[in-house]
């Protein structure tokens, strides 16, 4: 692999990821509306929203806040580039964590009580899903001998049959990453609920747009990690379908469930998520999977 090829791949990933993410978000809003008996916005609505936000006059509550918005986007994009270049899975997850941590830090840097409360809840959400994402790398590494994405792709057969327990745990984590019900304590996704946006209450205009873009990258990245479960072998295209199916399940659950309190969220995430992964590791060691 020469440098030109590497730069090309990274560029394509950086340009394509938000396009895919925004489009998925549009489908998400349309499907959600249909499930609620409404027609729903146009598919390009998320792009209109973000472009409009970039055109608003910047208004900030504090300088620090803006730094964290840029850092969130920058680090998430870095994680996507890491994925595109098939680097180390652990390293990628840590960069992603560091990026997501910028949101609560930004929220806690201003005095607004909504923002403060949102920041605290965001940290709790963190506590719930980060261990799942991190531990999910372990059974994968046991299967393919190493943490690099190249190793997963060069592994002769798909991972899903042996790691479906881990896959389910990752789905739970993905619902938390996307802040979907029942795991939406930190955001109250629509800004007319009790936290009026939570971590993003104090962000407006272009900075809100940066954060939204970051979320698109984040979502595409986690879906790509789901896709890795079928990426090896000849039927690699099935991985896209599997990732999208997982995403549809999360949308469905989002629309039929109410919000959990943070303590039940933590209990569920650690009990079910970490439990499934631990079971998977034990079964691998016993040679049953």
């Amino acid at each position: 692999m020469n440098t030109g090829w590497l730069i090309g791949t990274a560029l394509i990933a950086v340009i394509a990821a938000p396009l895919i993410g925004g489009w998925l978000k549009g489908i998400d809003r349309r499907l959600t509306a249909r499930m609620q008996g409404r027609w729903g916005p146009p598919l390009l609505q998320p792009f209109y929203d973000v472009i409009k936000l970039f055109g608003k006059n910047p208004m900030v509550a504090g300088r620090t806040q803006t730094v964290f918005a840029y850092a969130f986007l920058g680090l998430t994009v870095t994680a996507v580039v890491f994925f595109a270049l098939r680097q180390d899975l652990l390293m990628l997850l840590f960069i992603l964590f560091f990026g997501s941590l910028c949101l609560p830090l930004g929220a806690l840097s201003v005095k607004s009580p909504y923002s403060q409360l949102g920041g605290h809840r965001e940290l709790l959400r963190f506590l719930a899903y980060e261990p799942i994402l991190l531990l999910a790398a372990v059974p994968i590494a046991l299967k393919v001998d190493g943490f690099s994405i190249t190793a997963i792709l060069e592994h002769g057969e798909p991972l899903l049959p042996g790691l479906w327990l881990t896959f389910i745990a990752l789905l739970i984590a993905l619902a938390m990453v996307m802040r979907k019900s029942p795991f939406d304590v930190s955001s109250s996704e629509h800004a007319h609920q009790e936290l009026v946006g939570g971590v993003v209450t104090e962000y407006s205009g272009p900075y809100l747009a940066l954060i939204e873009l970051g979320h698109w990258y984040e979502m595409v990245l986690v879906l790509s990690v789901l896709g890795l479960f079928w990426a090896a072998g000849s039927l690699w295209w099935l991985s896209i379908i599997i990732a999208l199916l997982g995403w549809l399940v999360i949308l469905l659950v989002d629309n039929i469930s109410a919000r959990l309190t943070w303590s039940s969220m933590l209990r569920f995430a650690w009990g079910a998520g970490i439990g499934l992964i631990a079971l998977n590791i034990v079964l691998i060691h016993l040679g049953w999977m």
Binding site: R29, A33, R38, G40, P42, H190, A191, V196, G197
Partner: peptide, 10 residues
Amino acid sequence: ERFGIVNMGN
């Protein structure tokens, strides 16, 4: 929401 109108509390 068909027209992209969303009610914000903020």
